[in-house]
Nucleic acid binder design. Structure first.
Lengths: 112, 112
DNA sequence: TTTACATACCTATGTATTTTAGGTATTGTT
DNA sequence: AACAATACCTAAAATACATAGGTATGTAAA
């Protein structure tokens, strides 16, 4: 990811959410999808993405299918059953985080 | 901070925002304030807070005033002029982050 | 045609932030 | 007397990510 340090900690959530919407995706596709959805506001770096995908796979949240397309290999990832559960959990965490931060930054009149 | 990894990267923003509302605060007070405002959802650890305060001071965003209260020392921090500007900037960053993440996690119907 | 960019994967090292796990010292509570 | 709360601190480890490389194929431009 590029730019704001706030994105630290949200990569896993982003990957899981995208996979919950797309059945199967490969790494490069994820980087491009995030770029277009966020209109360039967020760029996932490959140095962060690939190790994250490998960890999610090792943790049993993703399964892999290797496919050759145009003489190039693609590694398609999809959510496992456990991955689906973790996605729900991570999205709840994110919503809680956003609510908490909005509580903290919502303007407080000086008499409070 | 305890719990969710999403809070990584938001400590500085939280400190600056609190100081923009309270004129002056000391470290321990900040930990307690965050705990009460968030109803225990977020606990800032001292091992993260004090180095962060020292860095903000070194960067010229905070000024310090040491006061003795009840035979104990308190280090009151307040925003400098530069600190005020940085607060605005950090809050904008946070709002952008939240908007971007909401774009990413907003439910997408399957035909999109 | 060769240069450059896009596609598609990868990893090692460095850096920054935070957690963990301590430490000191005083005051208030049980 | 023992413990929690107040108030500060730091060193070492863990974590996540950025940086900066690497390989290889396909495609478009010069």
């Amino acid at each position: 990811m590029k730019n704001s340090k706030l994105y630290k900690g949200s990569l896993i959530t982003i990957i899981l959410k995208l996979l919950s919407e797309h059945e199967k995706m490969y790494g490069y596709e994820i980087t491009q999808k995030v770029k277009t959805i966020t209109k360039g506001a967020l760029k996932i770096t490959e140095g962060a993405l690939y190790p994250a995908l490998h960890k999610l796979e090792a943790d049993g949240l993703l399964s892999v299918e290797i496919v050759e397309v145009n003489n190039r290999l693609r590694k398609y990832y999809k959510l496992t059953e456990q991955g689906n559960k973790e996605t729900v959990s991570k999205l709840n965490e994110l919503e809680n985080y956003i609510k908490t931060m909005q509580t903290l930054i919502s303007p407080k009149p000086s008499w409070q």
